[in-house]
């Protein structure tokens, strides 16, 4: 998902017998659906895991602006341009809600940004693919934001108060993103043969990376099991992926587009779609930094941070100077 392969630092799921009194009390609060707030006592592993998860999520929102920003100047109409700018601005907002939720756990904003730039913390694999045509912008809204909603709606109920509250805000806005994407696809699919072919080409390229967003099966993962006990992961990767496929295939049918999977079929017995094998080798290569755009994305982020340094410094210098002047007048 936006936070993929989040490690807990633990080798096995902690049993009740291994817990201290404080840890038992903490787990009891989570089991009773009482939110954990920043000043409450929490196990170190819970704090560290959440910092990693929320931070990855925040970085994904910020890096996620880049593939779409690529099309702001080339949107096909003034209205599409205004809509895309509003969407990209929302992504910045989502990143900021999430950074501030992570900061309540005691990590500084600068530290998180330094960790991203040093490659210590990842962002979602999906943003390492290029946006080659305008149809890619439609597909990202439809599929990538659709997948994000799938993951983020359950997180509104997660155990950590600031993260849950940030997710509520994000989900309210995300639906606009998905619909504007579908609207682009609908327009292309009702357009000329070339436009429809462009929509199909974009779906062909984004379908499998979108399914990879949910991450490999975590049915056997200790980290996922522990995160589930802490209620910072509410559904398994496979469950979320299945929901996404079940929801999206009929939408593609409506558009008259073909999902690029020969094995895709509806199973009457289960009421779910079955689908072909995902190329996890590609996923791991992208995570490791070998996707089509990894280097470009990181270079763009690092440049933005470094080239903006003088602005941050000047603003602080200005604020200090003004505060000193006001203090002198008051004296």
């Amino acid at each position: 998902m936006y936070a993929q392969l989040v490690e807990t630092g633990l080798k096995e799921v902690q049993g009740v017998a291994d817990m201290t009194a404080e840890e038992r009390e903490f787990q009891a609060r989570i089991d009773a659906d009482i939110k954990i707030e920043p000043k409450d006592w929490m196990p170190d592993a819970y704090r560290r895991t959440l910092i990693r998860q929320i931070q990855q999520h925040a970085h994904s929102e910020i890096v996620g602006m880049l593939p779409e920003g690529n099309w702001i100047t080339r949107a096909p109409s003034l209205q599409r341009k205004a809509i895309l700018m509003a969407k990209v601005q929302d992504e910045a907002g989502h990143g900021l809600y999430l950074y501030c939720a992570a900061e309540t756990l005691g990590v500084s904003r600068d530290q998180m940004i330094a960790d991203l730039h040093a490659g210590k913390v990842k962002y979602s694999s999906i943003f390492n693919y290029p946006t080659l045509t305008w149809a890619d912008i439609g597909t990202i809204g439809w599929l990538v934001d659709g997948a994000a909603i799938m993951n983020q709606i359950p997180l509104c109920r997660c155990s950590f108060g600031p993260y849950a509250r940030a997710m509520v805000r994000v989900c309210k806005e995300e639906s606009f993103h998905q619909r504007q994407g579908f609207d682009i696809m609908l327009t292309l699919c009702r357009g000329t043969a070339e436009q429809k072919a462009m929509a199909q080409d974009a779906l062909n390229r984004w379908w499998w990376p979108s399914l990879m967003m949910f991450g490999p099966s975590d049915a056997a993962s200790v980290h996922s099991a522990q995160s589930a006990r802490w209620k910072i992961k509410l559904l398994s990767n496979d469950e979320l992926r299945q929901r996404f496929v079940d929801q999206t295939v009929p939408q593609a049918d409506f558009l008259g587009l073909r999902i690029p999977d020969d094995e895709l079929a509806f199973d009457d017995a289960t009421g779910h779609y079955t689908f072909g094998d995902i190329d996890w080798n590609e996923f791991h290569e992208v995570i490791k930094g070998h996707g089509p755009c990894n280097r470009d994305r990181m270079r763009t982020r690092v440049n933005a941070w470094e080239e903006g340094a003088w602005v941050r410094e000047a603003a602080i210098a200005h604020a200090e100077k003004r505060a000193a002047r006001e203090a002198k007048h008051a004296a």
């Binding site: 501030c100 900061e103 904003r109 940030a166 604020a319």
Partner: peptide, 11 residues
Amino acid sequence: VGSLHAADAEM
């Protein structure tokens, strides 16, 4: 509603 970073109150 949340928090943010800024150099001064106006910002």
